[in-house]
Design a binder for these strands. Sequence first.
DNA 1: GTCTACCAAATTGTTGACAATCTCCGGGCG
DNA 2: CGCCCGGAGATTGTCAACAATTTGGTAGAC
Lengths: 230, 230
Amino acid sequence: MANSPNIAEDTMRERRVGRRVSAETVAEQLVQAIKRREFRPGDRLREQDLAERFGVSRGPVREALRMLQSKSLVRIVPMRGASVASLSDREAVEAVEIGAALFALGMRKAAEAEHECALEPVKAQWRALEEMADLSVPPKAFYRQTVLMGDALLHIATTQRLRTLLLDVRLGAPAIHGPLGFTSAELRKTSIRKWAELIDAVETRQADTAERLARELHLDALEAALGVLP
Amino acid sequence: MANSPNIAEDTMRERRVGRRVSAETVAEQLVQAIKRREFRPGDRLREQDLAERFGVSRGPVREALRMLQSKSLVRIVPMRGASVASLSDREAVEAVEIGAALFALGMRKAAEAEHECALEPVKAQWRALEEMADLSVPPKAFYRQTVLMGDALLHIATTQRLRTLLLDVRLGAPAIHGPLGFTSAELRKTSIRKWAELIDAVETRQADTAERLARELHLDALEAALGVLP
DNA sequence: GTCTACCAAATTGTTGACAATCTCCGGGCG
DNA sequence: CGCCCGGAGATTGTCAACAATTTGGTAGAC
């Protein structure tokens, strides 16, 4: 109550009483910057630069880099520094396939789990997705909606580890896993239909069907993306 | 003979050209110590203790802890320190299922990959496994041999990311994923047979069969382990 | 002209000291 | 008797300086 709500419009040098540690916020902001393409795959990440950018010393920056290294988001070679990880086409495809396998497992577990009324918000999001069939909606928005739905479905399976792992894997291959594939009205229609079938499979506890549909949803998008790339 | 591996008081000095960075060796040794059960799930990891143990200062120790945190091997809560991650039964099962899904994907890719004569060493290791059907061989040895075979099979699929990811996931749940299940002669026979079938499926490019067998091999062992635990 | 040795700048790796925070243990008070 | 308070010790978070290594360029020899 007597807590004065210090607003965070100031720079990050603001000394918050909160228990946030520098290394964590640095890692988080660095991830955002990479997602925002301010740093691109292959770009070098000099410790001093990052330290000045985030208003801390090199210690927390090094910790943040180590965290992101373990998530395969940055590459560190001893005595030569860090850089944003850049995946070959083969590795990117592999990452998407891993994501598909993990998501398929998640959908199996969701179908097997208890999920009383938890499917209602998912259905609401599906209706939002259905509205995006028209190509006037940018592919990125469509893609984001699918990610939202997938995460909501994963949530009802209560598989924390799986969710974070999937998030990490997707972070590494945004180029292919991203909205690249959703430029075709055909694919969007198929995708919308399969999402509906997936939700139904989860609701009616058909684990095998749910697993298959989840995998197909990912691999369809991958195939489409590969058709755009080369 | 020439080298006694116990005392390491001078190793940090100038044993070799400093190509290795402290944080990496600390992380590696800490992982070994955790695998060796010198630190057990839930045990606290004080930075100063680890620093003295490994002969470095707290900086590299903190970096190592961050690396292991991102791999879900240690848990760090701000201002309260690090501890070895301890999984609930549910989380451990989840980890094994994730491992099964990843390995199944790897076997699919192995079956689809080009693999001229690369299967010969795998077959040699299978013959070694076959010799271990007798229960006089400790379960741990049998388990280790299966891990070796699995890794060799993954190798021919050239899926680096998948291998490291699988390794990380397995590190987190050694209690269940370990040799717990292989105390039954029945299970060993089934396992040996399915490994042979798996190798054959990879050799004859039957991706679906390889994927199914890989999953079954993991889930059979999980089921057996769950039968021992409660 | 090309190759090698070597120096200087830049960058990473490591350390010890200092600051911030938490934990624990008594003592005072309702 | 139970609860709040406070301070000392322990532990983590952060920083700036120092050491080690790589890199890029330059001078010299052949």
